[in-house]
Amino acid sequence: MLPKVNDLVYIQVASADNKEADKECKSRIADIEDDFFLIEMPIEIGSGRIKRLFVGDELSVYFLTDAGIKNYFNTYVLGFVDDVVQLIRIRKPEPESITKIQRRNFLRVVAELEIAVRLKDNTRFVAHTDDVGGGGVSFLCDGKFKLTQGDQVYCWLLIPYKNGSIEHAPFEAEVVRTKKLETGKTLIMLKFASISDMERQKIIRYCFERQFDFRNR
């Protein structure tokens, strides 16, 4: 079951800032196409302020059925359309992905991307990721690099998109876990400690592209 034109939708925007992530906005479905919804500019509930969205923003959305049941889905911002008022284009979810349970975790996908890492002692090396997501990444590195839980690292992630463009996303992260592998490599799991919204959006956009690649195989 999908929302219909003129249905109200309630939105929360994925953010590392818990205060921002907890803010709820409301909008309305203005039009429906094959692969996307067009929604009106969201309004923050309580303050009445317009919530500005950006391409790549990951959204947790719910709408109400006639019986008052909340139906949740995750989506992201594809772009904008100038009509009488500006509308926002968001990815239409697969009907089977709609659930009565809210899922607000950042999307995470398996991906082997090049990542440059600088440690606090200024040691530098290049590695490859094991997975990436809007909340953090994990990568494989040589066991000679001694990283432990709580260490801070500075990274630059190379992100290739389907259209052939390449972006770099710099960020600071904290090591949350390490795991020695039989290959002699070490798996380093990171969560973002400091990353701009623009850089996070680059990673989320890549994750959604990868997710749709997997789904269409």
Rank of each mutant, 00 (worst) to 15 (best):
K51N: 03
L2V: 07
L64N: 03
A193L: 13
A111R: 03
R52T: 08
F63E: 01
I32T: 07
Y62P: 05
K120L: 11
L113Y: 07
R103K: 13
Y76A: 00
K19D: 10
I11P: 10
T129H: 10
D7H: 03
G164T: 01
V13E: 07
E40C: 07
N18P: 10
E209N: 08
D34N: 14
R108H: 01
H128T: 06
G133C: 01
R103S: 08
K100G: 11
D35W: 02
V5P: 04
Y62A: 05
C207P: 03
R28M: 13
V5C: 02
F73L: 06
S60N: 14
P3Q: 02
V117Y: 11
D35I: 00
G164D: 08
F36V: 01
E174V: 13
G133Y: 02
D7F: 04
P160Y: 05
E167G: 08
L187Y: 01
N105R: 15
T65S: 14
Q149T: 14
K180F: 13
R210W: 01
V176A: 05
Q86H: 05
Q152N: 09
G150A: 06
L87N: 07
P160A: 00
Y62G: 06
I50V: 15
T129K: 12
T178R: 07
E58I: 00
F214C: 02
Q201G: 04
T183D: 14
S138K: 12
V61K: 05
R49C: 07
E94W: 10
D17T: 02
I11R: 06
I101L: 15
F208G: 02
L87D: 01
I115T: 06
Q86Y: 07
L78T: 02
P42N: 02
G135W: 02
E114C: 04
E199C: 06
F192Q: 05
F36G: 03
L2M: 08
N18Y: 11
G48H: 07
F192T: 05
G79D: 07
M1R: 09
D83R: 09
V84N: 09
Y72G: 09
I115P: 08
G68E: 00
S15E: 04
I204D: 09
L190E: 01
R215W: 12
S165H: 11
L190P: 03
M189Q: 15
C207I: 06
A116V: 00
E112W: 04
G46M: 02
F54H: 12
D151R: 03
L38K: 04
A67W: 05
V175K: 07
L53I: 00
F171Q: 13
V84T: 13
I11C: 10
G150E: 01
R200T: 00
S196T: 15
C207G: 08
T183N: 14
N6C: 04
E33N: 14
F106R: 12
D34K: 15
S15R: 10
R28A: 08
